[in-house]
Write a protein that binds this DNA or RNA. Structure first.
Length: 308
DNA sequence: AAGACGAAAGTGGTTGA
DNA sequence: TCAACAACTTTCGTCTT
């Protein structure tokens, strides 16, 4: 596999490799396999590596996005390469190398800092490693596409983490991301939307049920209450009470009702605080749930029981 | 007195002309 | 680009437990 100094037309990533045996060029960032004929363009595709280097078997650490350069470095040429060049080419060569150096060091410095921040926020939120990796990947793509320009590095990190959480179905609220990264909630949401749109990823609305375990444990509710609230949410989804609504509000209302039914009452205030919505939103969802899912009987039942 | 309820006005984002 | 719009919030007064 030979590394090219050329950007991927799909994701604009710089990690393109030419597999000589197969005659394919593969982008390590988006997995795109470029058409063979692109290789034939010859001069467009500059190969700065020397053969011997690459044909040697290489066994290294697995490539990872949380390392700032994925464990792979790019360099324009070596000293040995230039002996065969005339003066003009030499100048060109040095110019190129200077630029390559400037660009790559700037990007690498940024990535180093950003990934440190990313790790900090991620561990603060106790996110799984897989999410951290995904976020690092998203951030790396964002940097390569120049999406960080005009935005603070921290907010892009927060946005990338938020996106990664959603893709792995371990959603955190914007409030939590905001608190962990000390970026305003609005800003996190804004950059999240921006980078997901620009990178063309994701866009599947998060499932309210994904929030239940975390909210429930924060409120010290029993496992029965948890599973009951998930049932309620599933019913609500079938009754089309969930589309267009904020998932956290639905999760909060479901949890509130099931707590009532199981005689583990929490105030609307408590649930609202944990879920990061207001009491009003809980009330609205709660009302809809009662109307459409006739849960009133069940609540009355538990009320009677408590009297006994 | 605390919690639940609901009306009214304001905010930020989406959508469609 | 702008206005209408839906969801959610803030605030506040009233009712219930």
């Amino acid at each position: 596999m030979v590394k090219y100094v050329k950007k991927c037309p799909e994701c604009n990533g710089i990690n393109l490799f030419w597999n000589k045996d197969r005659g394919e060029v593969i982008c390590k960032d988006c997995g795109l396999v470029l058409e063979e004929k692109m290789v034939d363009f010859g001069q467009e595709w500059r190969d700065f590596s020397d053969e011997g280097d690459e044909s040697r078997a290489r066994a290294g650490a697995p490539s990872t996005y949380t390392q700032f350069d994925q464990g792979l470095g790019t360099e324009v040429g070596r000293k040995a390469d230039i002996y065969q060049l005339d003066r003009k080419s030499k100048n060109k060569f040095f110019r190129l190398r200077k630029w390559q150096y400037r660009i790559s060091t700037a990007i690498e410095r940024n990535l180093k800092l950003a990934l440190a921040e990313l790790k900090r926020v991620s561990s603060y939120l106790k996110l799984p490693k897989s999410v951290e990796e995904e976020a690092a990947k998203i951030y790396t793509l964002a940097v390569q596409r120049g999406l960080v320009r005009g935005r603070s590095m921290e907010s892009v990190v927060a946005g990338a983490l938020y996106a990664a959480c959603r893709r792995h179905e371990v959603p955190r609220t914007l409030d939590e991301l905001s608190e962990a990264s000390s970026i305003e909630k609005k800003e996190v949401g804004r950059t999240y939307r921006f980078i997901t749109r620009e990178l063309g990823i994701n866009i599947l609305p998060s499932n309210p049920a994904d929030y239940i375990p975390r909210f429930a444990s924060a409120l010290k509710l029993s496992a029965e209450t948890q599973s009951r609230s998930i049932e309620i949410i599933e019913k609500a989804q079938k009754a089309e009470l969930t589309s267009g609504r904020g998932p956290t509000g639905i999760a909060a209302a479901g949890l509130y009702v099931s707590a009532l039914i199981n005689g583990e009452k929490r105030t609307q205030r408590e649930v609202a605080d944990v879920a990061g919505v207001t009491e009003v939103t809980i009330r609205n969802r709660y009302k809809e749930l009662l109307e459409r899912l006739d849960l009133e009987k069940e609540i009355k039942k538990t009320k009677k029981k408590r009297k006994d």
